[in-house]
Computed example of a mutant assay.
Amino acid sequence: MKSNLLHTIASLSLVTLSAADSPTNCLLASNSLGEYNACCSGQVEGISEIDGIQFEYFCDSWWDPQAPAPVNTASARECAQLCYWDGACTGSTWVSRNGHCYLTTSSEDLQKKSYPPYSEGYMALRQRIGLSPPESACAPWINAAVANETTECANRLKPIQDARDVLERENQAYNTSLRHIQKERDGLNEANRNLSTALSQLQRQTEVLNQTSQELNGTNLFYKKLLDGEIGMTSNWREWARCPGADGKEITVQGVTYRQFCNQRLYSPNGFPRDNVILGYEDCIASCNDLPWCRGINFWTKWTRACFRFDYEGTYPLPKNFSEQVIAITPV
């Protein structure tokens, strides 16, 4: 159908018909004899119109070269239409006595032949080239071509649309899986943060426990030395003889250096020492070495439990008070 449409359009051009070229309707008859008589009575050639398409016809003639085998047709009209619908056909020959139709498809130029009386009843037919058919004649082929192309386009488009639908479904499934994975990832991240927080808390608790353990070990060591007699007890009044010569001077006991302040006592922001024990002067200082928490000492010479040990950070000596028989001792 498409080739016929292109064949028709390619052969169209605008011409002006004269009165002598006006077509007849002799090819409208439905039987062979009627057509032949209508077209060839009193004339040897003419023009007739079929569905708006003009055809030339030549009576008692045939086209050369001629097709080797005929097609059976009911009329010259049908024979002309068969040639028109065949894009390769250049002309057709119709025999009225038997309805044979010979379609010439050779690329050679058509030669009109006539050989009376043998050619009597023959009609050589061909489309009239160089004329524009009426719009109504083109409409059926144009509509058919449009419908055919529309159907073909829809057929080609369908597998593409089906593939697109499959891809969309796969993409939706992928997105759903991705959301699940992201949700699981977020849950794992939250669990990891919780574990990190718990681990940090455990580490801080471990540090506190370790520090407490060190303090307890130091205290235990001190009391063990005290019980074992490694730490002796001397007269506190003899220790007071160190002042005022020891005031402001350093003293090193067991490798740790301290500074001494006569007639001064330490002040702790919390107001109290951590503990107090009965020890001599240097033994009191040595006990501070063994206690990780020890920040300083008040050594009272007028009391029996002379060694007051402080653990509060920021402990410092107060101004001198000569009515107090005390020596403040702080690490250097």
Score class of each variant (00 low, 15 high):
residue 3 S to L: 11
residue 8 T to G: 07
residue 14 L to R: 09
residue 16 T to N: 11
residue 19 A to H: 15
residue 22 S to Y: 08
residue 25 N to E: 12
residue 25 N to Y: 01
residue 27 L to D: 13
residue 28 L to P: 07
residue 29 A to S: 05
residue 31 N to V: 03
residue 34 G to S: 14
residue 39 C to F: 04
residue 40 C to K: 10
residue 46 G to F: 00
residue 47 I to R: 15
residue 48 S to M: 02
residue 48 S to R: 01
residue 49 E to F: 02
residue 56 E to V: 05
residue 64 D to L: 09
residue 64 D to A: 12
residue 65 P to S: 04
residue 68 P to V: 02
residue 72 N to A: 09
residue 72 N to Q: 08
residue 73 T to F: 01
residue 75 S to M: 03
residue 76 A to K: 02
residue 79 C to P: 14
residue 82 L to G: 02
residue 83 C to L: 05
residue 84 Y to V: 00
residue 85 W to F: 08
residue 92 S to H: 10
residue 93 T to Q: 00
residue 99 G to D: 01
residue 104 T to C: 09
residue 106 S to N: 07
residue 109 D to S: 06
residue 110 L to C: 10
residue 110 L to H: 06
residue 111 Q to N: 14
residue 113 K to N: 04
residue 119 S to F: 10
residue 119 S to K: 06
residue 121 G to C: 05
residue 121 G to M: 02
residue 122 Y to N: 14
residue 123 M to H: 01
residue 126 R to Q: 06
residue 127 Q to M: 12
residue 131 L to R: 12
residue 133 P to H: 04
residue 136 S to M: 03
residue 137 A to C: 04
residue 142 I to L: 10
residue 149 E to D: 11
residue 154 A to D: 15
residue 154 A to I: 14
residue 156 R to Q: 13
residue 157 L to N: 13
residue 157 L to K: 09
residue 157 L to Q: 13
residue 158 K to E: 15
residue 160 I to H: 12
residue 162 D to G: 07
residue 163 A to N: 14
residue 163 A to H: 03
residue 166 V to R: 01
residue 166 V to P: 04
residue 169 R to C: 00
residue 170 E to K: 06
residue 172 Q to T: 15
residue 172 Q to W: 00
residue 175 N to K: 09
residue 176 T to A: 14
residue 178 L to P: 07
residue 178 L to E: 13
residue 178 L to Y: 10
residue 180 H to R: 05
residue 184 E to Q: 05
residue 184 E to T: 13
residue 189 N to Q: 12
residue 191 A to I: 04
residue 191 A to C: 03
residue 195 L to S: 11
residue 196 S to D: 11
residue 198 A to E: 09
residue 199 L to P: 03
residue 200 S to Y: 11
residue 201 Q to T: 13
residue 204 R to Q: 12
residue 207 E to V: 03
residue 208 V to Y: 04
residue 212 T to V: 00
residue 218 G to T: 01
residue 223 Y to L: 10
residue 224 K to A: 08
residue 224 K to H: 11
residue 225 K to F: 08
residue 229 G to S: 06
residue 230 E to Q: 10
residue 231 I to P: 06
residue 234 T to H: 09
residue 234 T to K: 02
residue 236 N to F: 10
residue 241 A to N: 02
residue 242 R to A: 15
residue 242 R to C: 08
residue 246 A to C: 05
residue 249 K to T: 12
residue 252 T to E: 10
residue 253 V to Y: 00
residue 253 V to D: 00
residue 253 V to T: 00
residue 256 V to D: 04
residue 257 T to I: 06
residue 260 Q to I: 12
residue 260 Q to S: 11
residue 260 Q to G: 13
residue 262 C to F: 00
residue 266 L to A: 05
residue 271 G to D: 02
residue 271 G to S: 15
residue 271 G to E: 04
residue 273 P to A: 11
residue 275 D to T: 10
residue 280 G to C: 05
residue 283 D to I: 08
residue 289 N to V: 15
residue 290 D to Q: 03
residue 291 L to T: 14
residue 293 W to H: 10
residue 298 N to S: 02
residue 300 W to V: 04
residue 305 R to D: 15
residue 306 A to D: 07
residue 308 F to G: 05
residue 308 F to A: 13
residue 310 F to D: 13
residue 313 E to D: 14
residue 317 P to V: 03
residue 319 P to M: 01
residue 320 K to G: 06
residue 320 K to M: 14
residue 322 F to V: 06
residue 328 A to R: 04
residue 329 I to L: 04
residue 330 T to P: 04
residue 331 P to R: 10
residue 332 V to K: 10
